[in-house]
């Protein structure tokens, strides 16, 4: 994580994937991720099929390569850790370019790398083609408890507002020459974050007033989720369906 979080992952577009109802995409993504998760790591052919499926989905969604690559960077630290495994792993060794590496470690590293990359790819397709409001609606449609859905919706609604406050405070500090390099110089930053918390909490109270004024008693109203036709489900499930078939075959082999 880091500063790139400040805006969401949505990539504006009008591809067939963009037009699928959010909850069908959510289910499709979860099916894909589950299929990847259950596949034994020795079945490299299965991962090759999954990768092809993921790339195909990105192509249909017309997600630019740079956009995908920038997002995939988030898993780099874990891939770095995985790359160490063959060196520190025990057991039998295999010669790779003159280095005696742990066989077991090589398999483990490739398993972690494959699954992490495929999972990230699926998340990128989902988040890249679905607006935040629709994702929230999709969660509601999938019977996630309405309370949790609405807390999530409220969080997404105010994220940029609150992040903007913090950013402006920081800019104001920098413009007056405060450029901390050490932890013990962080007091002004922590103070501005504390002030932002107070403002956020007070904002929460005002939002509560606004909700109460419009008849809210604690039960979230129906968000009118968009219904999905059968053809939407078929499209959303088609690709993950392939991965399920592959996963079953891989488990059986």
């Amino acid at each position: 994580m880091g500063a790139e979080h400040s805006h969401a992952l949505f990539h504006h577009g009008h591809s067939p994937v963009h037009h699928l109802p959010a909850h069908t995409k959510l289910v499709g993504t979860l099916v894909f991720v589950a299929a990847v998760a259950v596949t034994p790591r020795q079945e490299l052919w299965a991962f090759a099929v999954y990768a092809a499926v993921a790339v195909f989905a990105m192509a249909v969604a017309r997600l630019p390569v740079r956009f995908v690559a920038r997002r995939a960077l988030l898993v780099l630290p874990f891939l770095g850790v995985a790359a160490l495994v063959p060196f520190i792993g025990g057991g039998e060794t295999t010669d790779v370019m003159g280095l005696a590496l742990s066989t077991e470690g090589l398999w483990a590293a490739s398993g972690i790398v494959c699954k992490a990359l495929l999972g990230t790819a699926a998340s990128i397709v989902l988040a890249g083609t679905t607006e935040q409001a629709d994702l929230v609606r999709g969660l509601a449609r999938l019977r996630v408890p309405p309370l949790l859905v609405m807390i999530t919706a409220t969080m997404l609604r105010y994220l940029e507002t609150v992040a903007g406050e913090l950013r402006r405070a920081r800019t104001a500090m920098q413009s007056r020459g405060h450029n901390p390099r050490w932890l013990w110089q962080a007091t002004p930053l922590a103070n501005s974050a504390g002030a932002t918390f107070v403002r956020s909490y007070e904002r929460g109270e005002r939002v509560h007033h606004a909700m109460a004024a419009r008849g809210f008693t604690g039960t979230p109203p129906d968000l009118n989720p968009q219904p999905a036709a059968g053809r939407h489900w078929i499209r959303a499930i088609a690709l993950p369906g392939i991965t399920v078939a592959v996963a079953i075959a891989a488990l059986a082999s």
Partner: peptide
């Protein structure tokens, strides 16, 4: 009934 706004905005924070 303050749960949604207070929890949601705090999560944003």
């Amino acid at each position: 009934d303050r749960q949604i706004p207070l929890t949601g905005v705090s999560a944003a924070f």
